[in-house]
Write a protein that binds this DNA or RNA. Structure first.
Lengths: 229, 229
DNA sequence: TTGACTTTGTGTCAATATGACACTTATCAT
DNA sequence: ATGATAAGTGTCATATTGACACAAAGTCAA
């Protein structure tokens, strides 16, 4: 029995909101479009989903094609289906977001985009399509997720100081935190452990370097713990 | 300039995980399919998204067509895009979940389904497609959301006793809660207010009836409060 | 009407968690 | 040596949590 003729079919895209941290500022990766519509304007990395790949595979592929980013940790954000979100025709888009350590990733424009670059989250160019909506939702999600799950480590180098971690929380949550209370809470979780190393080449007392104990995290998560910070 | 010819297009569906509470048990609304594939088997309500409606509109429409449920509280859950999730062809599905007051809603099978009925969440028939995956994710989401947002009220009648509310939390979170501590916490939020009415026709001391203060909730939400219970 | 039954409704206390708060230490640059 | 900069550290008062048990209210049946 065949049904093909009766299904409505929609063009399906993915869009990727990529966050990074640099010198304490939250950054957003954008690409400059080299095709119509919105040619020359800045937008989220993304593109059409092929019929032989999942949306997640499509997001990873487009990300690599347009920015050179590989193997990033992506989470699905939301599916946007407003009728007029693409001027060409009805296009439904599955949005993903990711946190990357800027230090680990070289970013470059490739053939699919005129340019790819990091921007300040609160000072970036006007975005094509409904991409500002998508970024807004990703920011909300990022804040909420950071509050309840230890994801900040994805944005920092493998070894980091507690001040860097605190700064990250302050930037994302848009609050000022007390240093002593922050350290107390973070260390109490047991998820952040001293590496024994210290900072190098700083013009002041060198800070201890810590790392995230992923094994312990997996174990606690299985046991159903909570991780508010 | 026209691009239509170059877009891959996928069949797009919605699926709805509908939760209800009845006599303290968490229930799931399922429909019995009257079309191939999986004809005669139980599945989530859902169907194809038309090109002139958003996915949310499609979910509400299918829900009404298949079960008679109207104006339910729907939230987007996740988009499922595994290549083999539909035996006919590549179909991507946007899943929603909903909470309904069983007391407010008559459920009936309509022309689009052979039957529609409530089942115990942990004792329901085997589901068609990948719908068990979707239900599992919806249950996880329900638990997490209930912990941080006051959504339990969507499942109860407008006026409810604190024992009913506590029972709902116990059933969904699969824990036993202390009555006095639960009442203290719930009342402290100020979101649950006495109506002045009491239970009728019960063979024991009648409980006070409370209701959810939606206005206060909207206000507190704007002010950025948290609502853990 | 009395007693049995069922569920409601309530307070305390100890332990823990939180939030506010300031100074000394280490390191580098001059 | 001195100054500049950021690291690192403890206390205390208050708020929150979790554990815990019994009297009051209402219905029903004998």
């Amino acid at each position: 029995m065949s049904f093909e003729y009766e299904f409505p079919r929609a063009a399906l895209t993915v869009d990727c909101v990529i966050f990074g941290i640099d010198e304490g500022d939250l950054k957003l990766m954008l690409i400059q479009r080299n095709l119509e519509p919105f040619k020359g304007e800045w937008a989220l990395a993304g593109g059409f989903v092929r019929l032989d790949e999942t949306t997640e595979e499509a997001a990873l592929r487009e990300l690599e094609e347009e920015t050179g980013l590989k193997k990033v940790f992506l989470e699905q954000l939301y599916t946007f289906s407003a009728l007029n979100r693409d001027p060409r025709e009805r296009v439904v888009s599955v949005a993903y977001y990711a946190l990357v350590r800027m230090s680990d990733h070289q970013v470059f424009a490739s053939t699919d985009a005129d340019d790819a670059a990091w921007f300040e989250v609160d000072a970036h160019p006007k975005l094509a399509f409904d991409h500002q909506n998508i970024v807004d939702m990703a920011l909300d999600r990022l804040k909420n997720t950071l509050r309840y799950r230890p994801i900040g480590f994805e944005l920092l180098p493998k070894k980091f100081t507690l001040s860097e971690l605190q700064h990250l929380y302050e930037v994302i949550l848009e609050t000022k935190l007390d240093k002593r209370n922050f350290r107390r809470r973070v260390l109490k979780t047991g998820l952040v452990v001293e590496t024994g190393d210290v900072q190098k080449d700083v013009a002041h007392r060198a800070a201890q370097l810590f790392s995230f104990d992923k094994k312990r995290y997996e174990k606690l998560k299985r046991d159903g713990f909570n991780f508010e910070v």
